[in-house]
């Protein structure tokens, strides 16, 4: 058994993969918790798609991809906020239009600028090809964001729970919003290598959502989410090693399986375990309540 766990660690690419997987697994649920409690989960997906044009341009100019991807992701988020504030267009529609446009622009730029950018690894991640430089960068981003979350925890709690109230006591809500956007964008860039932009939303939302079913406070949700995220990453990498599965999807599937378990068995909110005061038969019938017609 022990050998089963140790054998893959003999390879450097596996050690790197696990290192970045754990970092991303811890970081994503912390930031993702804020997305969930603000009902903005899809924004993670949107920004992930929005980074592509910037990525392509920084490849073309030969600058660090972090700069281009960050600028382009933030631009997308700001554009959505701007459309919302200036028109009657609702946020979901603004998001759908913005992210597809940015994505199309990115793919076009890759062709036009004749980039050597590997679209496949951008979309689906390439955790086995991680370099020590990637790990370093992810570590710095993760440390920075976790520190900021710790320092501004009470302000962010107020802001995400009651925006009007936060504004009413004079908190700089626009700065908080911008900082939050920056944190999401950085998190996505840090996670790109591990799971790719299509699947990063799953790591942002999955473990945090699982934790949401198990806890009653935001900070607990973040801590439990981070533990689950790290577990999902490690388990996913091992699965992909032994079963020859694509590693990004393996991580995501483990994370989703954990959610399914919590959904069924969470002590307070699990479908099979909640409301013990009801008779088993009533509980069983309640499960099919949704079939009832509401005329």
């Amino acid at each position: 058994m022990l050998n089963l766990l140790l054998e893959p660690l003999g390879y450097e690419f596996m050690r790197n993969a696990i290192a970045i997987g754990v970092l991303v697994g811890i970081l994503c649920p912390v930031v993702g918790s804020y997305l969930i409690v603000q009902r903005m989960a899809l924004l993670g997906d949107v920004i992930a798609h929005c980074v592509l044009p910037g990525l392509s341009i920084s490849f073309f100019l030969g600058i660090d991809i972090l700069i281009g991807a960050f600028g382009s992701g933030i631009l997308g988020a700001l554009l959505i906020a701007w459309i919302r504030s200036q028109t009657r267009v609702k946020v979901d529609a603004a998001m759908a239009l913005t992210f597809s446009t940015f994505f199309a622009l990115g793919v076009t730029l890759i062709t036009v600028l004749k980039n050597k950018l590997d679209l496949d690894s951008f979309l689906f991640g390439d955790i086995l090809g991680v370099t020590p430089h990637d790990i370093q960068r992810t570590f710095v981003i993760a440390a920075l964001i976790l520190l900021v979350v710790k320092l501004f925890y009470k302000e962010l709690l107020f802001y995400t729970f009651d925006k009007t109230g936060a504004q009413a006591i004079g908190l700089p809500i626009n700065t908080l919003y911008f900082g939050f956007m920056a944190a999401i964008t950085l998190t996505i860039i840090a996670s790109m290598q591990a799971v790719g932009v299509i699947l990063v939303i799953s790591l942002l939302v999955g473990p945090a959502l699982t934790a949401y079913l198990l806890t009653k406070e935001l900070h607990q949700m973040m801590i439990v989410g981070a533990i689950l995220g790290a577990i999902a990453s490690i388990a996913g990498v091992y699965l992909s090693y032994y079963q020859n599965l694509p590693s990004g999807p393996a991580i995501v599937l483990v994370s989703s399986s954990l959610f399914l378990l919590a959904l069924l068995f969470s002590p307070s909110q699990g479908i099979l375990t909640r409301s013990p005061q009801l008779e088993p038969a009533t509980r069983f019938m309640n499960r099919f309540k949704f079939l009832k017609r509401h005329d």
Partner: peptide, 18 residues
């Protein structure tokens, strides 16, 4: 959003943020 993961105590503690 009344589904927000927060306890009564911490809601009231928000008053002291500023």
């Amino acid at each position: 959003d009344w589904d927000y993961p927060i306890t009564v105590w911490n809601v009231v503690m928000m008053a002291r943020t500023r």
